[in-house]
Design a protein around this nucleic acid. Structure first.
Lengths: 85, 85
DNA sequence: TGCGAAATATCCCTTTCGGGAAAATTCTCT
DNA sequence: AGAGAATTTTCCCGAAAGGGATATTTCGCA
């Protein structure tokens, strides 16, 4: 299982891969700079929706592998920013 | 990209698959009952760390598929409940 | 040595989460 | 179908934390 620290590291790596600064990725993801800094640092209390926003901005796909081995992955790019409530 | 609502649905499905009640899974995950209710409902502001705790309790693995197709899946390490700060 | 990027700190408002119990919804069984 | 049981959801409260924006400090690299 990936922990938050690892996810943060992946996000950082991907961001650099794309040649983006933190504030640029933050803006592109619709989150604050401070949020991105804390996310890359692995803070466990970051909000999940925003994490997904950042991942989406990076073009990454999140997947869940069930105990039986089946991997569930949604659509690759869905710039949905808000769906709760 | 999986959105929070979908993740919540997957969690609910997995929970039922295991024959657990919400309060049982919440207890097993170390989160509050209300948190689990909100998570399964797809609330986007749930805390990432707790979501991972719940997924771990269900035996699910989280993975990130990078744009280049490489899938990153952390080791199925111990159910760490607290690692930041 | 100096500039851009990254990390921190602070202010301040909004929101989350937990716990217990009631209310509401869903399911089961005769 | 109806009663009753089980499960889920919501509510209240308070404590705690998130996070945006900005200013400042630290770090990295040429």
């Amino acid at each position: 299982m990936l922990n938050v620290a690892t996810i943060g590291q992946i996000i950082r790596d991907e961001r650099k891969e794309l040649g983006l600064r933190q504030d640029e990725l933050a803006a592109a993801s619709g989150v604050g700079l401070r949020f991105l800094v804390e996310l890359e640092r692995g803070k466990v209390t970051v909000q999940m929706g925003k994490v997904l926003d950042v991942l989406a901005a990076l073009g990454c796909e999140l997947q869940i592998k069930r105990p039986d081995g089946i991997v569930i992955a949604g659509r690759a790019d869905a710039p949905k920013k808000d769906e709760a409530e």
